[in-house]
Measured scan of single mutants.
Amino acid sequence: EEEKYTVIYPYTARDQDEMNLERGAVVEVIQKNLEGWWKIRYQGKEGWAPASYLKKNSG
């Protein structure tokens, strides 16, 4: 089951394993960790993003 989330704040990656996020983008969360960083898939790429910048899509 894919978990789709919408980006609610833009984010600029500060590290090579982080993802740039555009507000309104829909991403797939593939791994959650306890530090508040989630691994996401977006446009065929995978990387880490701050969970607080993502909002779960309803339905």
Rank of each mutant, 00 (worst) to 15 (best):
V26W: 03
G44F: 02
Y53G: 11
P10K: 15
G24F: 02
K45E: 06
V27W: 00
N20Y: 07
D15F: 04
L54G: 00
Y53L: 13
Y11A: 02
E3A: 06
I30V: 15
L21Y: 01
E46K: 03
E46G: 02
P50E: 02
K45W: 04
G24S: 03
S52V: 05
A13I: 10
P10L: 01
K4G: 07
G59L: 04
I30E: 03
Y5C: 08
K32M: 05
V27S: 00
Y9I: 15
D17S: 14
Y42I: 11
Y5E: 00
G24P: 00
Q43A: 12
P10T: 12
E22K: 14
E18V: 07
G47V: 08
Q43Y: 07
A25S: 08
Y11T: 09
E18F: 09
R23A: 11
I8Y: 05
G36C: 07
I8L: 14
L54I: 04
Y11N: 03
E46M: 12
K4S: 14
E3D: 06
K39N: 01
G36E: 13
I30S: 05
A49F: 11
P50H: 06
G59F: 05
E3W: 03
L34F: 13
E2R: 03
V27K: 00
E1D: 04
P50A: 02
R14I: 06
E46R: 02
I8C: 12
E46L: 09
W37F: 15
A13W: 04
N57D: 13
Y42G: 05
R14G: 11
E2H: 04
A25Y: 04
K56C: 09
I8G: 06
K32Y: 03
Q43R: 12
G47C: 11
D17G: 14
L21S: 00
S58Y: 10
K56Y: 03
D17I: 09
E18T: 11
Y11L: 09
L21I: 06
A25Q: 03
P10N: 13
G24D: 10
G44I: 00
I8V: 15
K45H: 15
Y42F: 14
R41N: 11
Q31W: 04
G44V: 00
V26A: 07
W38S: 14
L54F: 13
A49P: 00
R14N: 08
T6H: 12
K56A: 11
V29K: 01
P10H: 14
R41Q: 03
G44N: 04
S52T: 10
D15C: 10
E35C: 06
T12G: 07
I30N: 02
R23V: 11
M19S: 04
K45R: 11
Y5V: 04
G59P: 11
K56L: 12
T6A: 10
Y42W: 13
G59R: 06
E28Y: 08
W38F: 04
G24H: 08
Y42V: 10
N33K: 14
Y53W: 04
W38Q: 01
G59I: 05
K56D: 07
A49D: 00
I8E: 09
